[in-house]
Measured scan of single mutants.
Amino acid sequence: TQVHVDGVTYTFSNPEEAKKFADEMAKRKGGTWEIKDGHIHVE
């Protein structure tokens, strides 16, 4: 599962880990995350 944050791609083999990471990054940025085309995007 790929997580895209500010133009950087992080790859996780476990989708649950990817979601936890996205959640943390979104909180830090004061933003949100969503799943697009099977990838997670942090806004």
Rank of each mutant, 00 (worst) to 15 (best):
T1Y: 11
T1A: 06
T1I: 13
Q2H: 13
V3D: 00
V3A: 01
V3W: 01
H4S: 06
H4W: 12
H4A: 04
V5G: 03
V5D: 04
D6Y: 07
D6V: 03
G7S: 07
G7E: 06
G7L: 05
V8P: 00
V8Q: 12
V8A: 11
V8Y: 13
V8S: 08
T9L: 08
T9Y: 11
T9F: 11
T9S: 08
Y10V: 05
Y10G: 00
Y10N: 01
Y10W: 09
Y10K: 03
T11R: 09
T11K: 08
F12T: 00
F12A: 00
F12Q: 00
F12H: 00
S13C: 14
S13E: 11
S13R: 08
N14T: 11
P15V: 14
E16N: 10
E16D: 12
E16K: 07
E17M: 10
E17Q: 10
E17N: 08
E17R: 07
A18Q: 00
A18M: 01
K19Y: 14
K19R: 13
K19S: 08
K20C: 15
F21T: 01
F21I: 01
A22L: 02
A22Q: 01
A22Y: 02
A22W: 01
D23I: 14
D23R: 10
D23M: 12
D23H: 08
M25N: 05
M25S: 06
M25L: 08
M25H: 06
M25E: 14
A26H: 02
A26Q: 03
A26F: 03
K27G: 09
R28F: 14
R28W: 13
R28Y: 14
K29D: 10
K29V: 15
K29H: 15
G30D: 06
G30M: 04
G30L: 05
G30S: 04
G30Y: 03
G31S: 05
G31F: 06
T32D: 05
T32E: 06
T32W: 15
T32A: 08
T32Q: 09
T32F: 14
W33I: 11
E34G: 07
E34H: 14
E34L: 13
E34A: 09
E34C: 14
E34P: 03
I35F: 12
I35D: 06
I35V: 10
I35M: 13
K36T: 07
K36L: 10
K36W: 07
K36C: 14
K36D: 05
D37L: 04
D37G: 07
D37Y: 05
D37R: 01
G38N: 07
G38A: 04
G38E: 04
G38L: 04
G38Q: 04
H39K: 07
H39P: 02
H39D: 09
H39W: 05
I40Y: 13
I40D: 02
H41C: 14
H41S: 07
H41I: 13
H41L: 10
H41Q: 07
V42D: 02
V42I: 12
E43M: 15
E43I: 15
E43G: 12
E43S: 14
